[in-house]
Simulated assay, not measured.
Amino acid sequence: MTTAYRTPSFLLLIGTVVLCFFAAGLGSLVTVTGTGSWFMTELIKPEWQPPDYLFGPVWTILYLLMGIALAFVLAQGTDRRDVRIAAGVFLVQLVLNVLWSYLFFGWEMIGAAAVEIVVLWVAICATMYLFYRIRPVAAYLLIPYLAWVTFATVLTATIWMLN
């Protein structure tokens, strides 16, 4: 037996992507890594840290995929309790995503950021589980995000240990 899935409307898709890019914008308000910044001048970072220019394009793709994933889930009907719960957990992980930027870059609390990113990782896993139960492709779209946050978790913890 095959399940019939609803396809997100163009407006829903645009709305969820805009939501995710709005979150990205909030985080970017405090993400300062240029010459003379605390990040560049005061922190010891591992040699294997990717170059700074890579983070912007990677996060742009990840936020786009997150928005598309959310649209696929919401398209199944917000009248469904499981869709509302999954969307709520998604929003929690999105807030945690923004919070990490404030903890690490804005408030320079590396240890708190290292702990918080583990909570974010768990929230992403929970989101993926809930999304999978509603629309599997939505969970698959979050795999690159989980992979990147896994790497970011190791990077954050390493920077914390080095400093």
Rank of each mutant, 00 (worst) to 15 (best):
V18F: 05
Y63M: 03
G27L: 02
P50F: 13
A24F: 03
G15R: 01
Y63D: 01
L12C: 11
F10Q: 12
T35V: 14
L11Y: 15
Y53G: 09
E42N: 07
L43V: 04
Y63E: 03
T60R: 11
Q49H: 14
F10M: 09
L54W: 11
T33G: 08
P57D: 08
M1F: 08
L19M: 14
E42W: 08
P8L: 00
T41N: 06
L13C: 14
T3I: 07
G27D: 01
P8W: 00
Y5D: 03
Y63P: 00
V58Q: 02
D52G: 10
T33A: 14
L13H: 10
T31Q: 13
T2A: 11
L29R: 11
L12S: 02
V30W: 02
G34C: 01
P50I: 09
L65G: 02
G56R: 10
G25N: 12
G36K: 07
C20V: 11
L11S: 15
P57E: 10
M1G: 12
L43R: 02
Y53S: 14
F10P: 08
Y5W: 05
G56T: 14
T3C: 03
P50D: 12
L11F: 11
S28M: 09
L64V: 06
V58H: 07
L29P: 00
K45A: 10
T35P: 09
G27R: 00
L54G: 06
V32D: 10
L26M: 13
W38G: 05
F55H: 04
W48A: 03
S28Y: 07
T2D: 15
T33I: 14
F22E: 07
I14K: 13
G15Q: 02
T31G: 06
T33M: 12
P8H: 01
F10I: 14
T7E: 14
P57V: 05
T16M: 02
T33L: 08
L13N: 03
Q49R: 15
P57L: 05
T31L: 11
V32H: 14
L11K: 14
P50E: 10
Y53Q: 13
I14A: 12
K45P: 05
G27W: 00
G15T: 04
P46K: 10
R6W: 06
V30A: 02
Y63A: 01
T2V: 13
R6G: 03
P51M: 09
